[in-house]
Design a protein around this nucleic acid. Sequence first.
DNA 1: ATGATTTGACCCTA
DNA 2: TAGGGTCAAATCAT
Length: 231
Amino acid sequence: MECTWPASRKLQEKVKEELLRGHELANQLRSVVGNSDGGLLAKGFVKKIVFSFTTSLSLLTGNHESKGEHIQVSTGSSTFALPTIVESSSSWDALKTIKSRETFTDSSSSSKKRKISHSWSRDAPDFNDDGHAWRKYGQKQILNAWHPRSYFRCSHKYEQGCKATKQVQKVEDDPSLFRTTYFGNHTCKHSLLKSPELILDNIIGGSPIEESNSTFMITFENRGGSKPRVI
DNA sequence: ATGATTTGACCCTA
DNA sequence: TAGGGTCAAATCAT
């Protein structure tokens, strides 16, 4: 009956920290690459990013034995599986905090809605600091969720055909945080980069990551812009 | 007056 | 058919 909630939560917090850090560094890397050839600076950032994600993945794979369940993480060009860190039978709530409906698909889950191939989500106290102009076009109460989900599209959708959208929902465990899930790339002129994709070598595989030969791509739909914006 | 938000209805997908 | 995603008219804010 009782689950391993506290331990899992602590772990999740750590993982979240690391992933956010990775994202932060990725943004810096994009700036560097965007302004110049990159070179050594870019390499340094890439190393740090790799380390962040390595730490996260080690936490996910090292301390908790998989029971055969996996979360599929779609990164656009590739999909890899991570073992879940919750007990399969004990904690639906915990599972919910980890799995975004669109970002992750669980083979045993009953998630019904459309599959989204490019998405990325983050938890932050402020959901409107991503440097883009968004326009809210809907809000819905979601089944089994305490908080409604808000739907935003790029303000330049019609003038420039930008297809970027995002969904914002309060984190159930921590209502002071907003979980923002981004879909699609910004194609509007205000975007600094067209497709912020990072290809990282030596990541993942389930084995020591430094020694892995696999390659995977991380796609961030949001950009660390500087333009203050209003929703 | 204009643009943004709200909200109920409708559409689409699993 | 249920439920998430989007539309669009009404309302609100500037």
